[in-house]
Amino acid sequence: MTSQSKNNRLLPLTVIEAAAGGDVEAINAVLKHYAGYIARLSMRELYDEYGNPHLCVYEVLRRRLETKLITKLLTFRVR
C-alpha cells in the first residue's frame, strides 16, 4: 500500500476539529468514517431456532459504541 492511499483513509484535521466543536455534520462524517469498524466490533454470533449460527450486528452494542465515540469527540481537545 502506498503512502498516498494510506493518507486517503485518514480524516482531515478540519473535520476532527469541527466535530470536537460540536458540528453535527462533522460528527456524522466521523461516524460514517468509523461505521465499518464499529459494525465489526458489534458483530455477535446468534443462533436460530434450529441451532444454526448467524453473524449479526448487535444494534444495542453498535449504538453504545457510537455514543461513546460522540462523547469522546466532544471532549477531545485539538492542539
Rank of each mutant, 00 (worst) to 15 (best):
N28S: 10
H33G: 07
V15C: 13
L46P: 00
L69T: 04
R40V: 11
L61E: 10
Y50V: 07
A35H: 13
E25A: 11
K32I: 09
G51H: 11
I70D: 01
E45P: 04
E17F: 04
K68D: 08
Y50M: 03
V15L: 11
H33M: 11
A18G: 06
D23L: 05
L13S: 09
K68C: 05
I70S: 00
V15Q: 10
L69S: 02
A29S: 12
H54V: 09
I70R: 06
L55F: 05
R64C: 06
T67N: 08
E66L: 00
R40E: 14
A18T: 10
R44C: 03
A18Q: 15
P12S: 14
Y37P: 01
I70G: 02
A19C: 12
R62N: 07
G51C: 03
I38N: 06
A39W: 02
Y58P: 00
T67P: 00
V57M: 06
P12I: 01
E49G: 04
A35L: 09
V30Y: 05
E25S: 14
Y50C: 06
D23K: 14
R64A: 13
D48I: 12
E45D: 11
G22Q: 09
L65C: 01
L69M: 13
P53D: 05
V24W: 00
E49Y: 07
E49P: 02
A29Y: 00
E66V: 00
E59V: 05
A39V: 05
L31C: 05
G36E: 14
E49M: 15
R64V: 01
K68A: 13
I27S: 02
L61T: 03
L55G: 02
L13A: 12
N52M: 10
T14H: 12
A35Y: 07
A26F: 03
Y37A: 11
R40P: 01
L61M: 14
R64S: 10
G21A: 12
A26Q: 10
N52Y: 08
A35Q: 14
L55P: 03
A39Y: 01
E66P: 00
A18F: 03
L55E: 15
V15N: 13
G51Q: 06
L31K: 11
Y47E: 11
L55W: 07
T14M: 11
Y50K: 14
V24A: 11
R63H: 00
T67R: 12
G36L: 08
A39T: 05
R62E: 07
I27Y: 01
L41Q: 14
D48M: 07
V60N: 03
L55N: 12
P53L: 07
D48V: 05
T67W: 02
L65V: 00
L61G: 02
A35W: 02
Y50P: 00
L46T: 13
I16D: 08
L13Y: 09
R64T: 09
L13D: 14
H54L: 06
I38C: 07
L65N: 04
A29C: 04
G51P: 10
I16F: 09
I27R: 04
A29K: 15
A29G: 10
T67I: 01
A29V: 10
I16T: 08
I38D: 13
L69R: 03
I38V: 11
G51M: 06
E45K: 15
L61H: 10
L31Y: 04
E66R: 01
H33S: 13
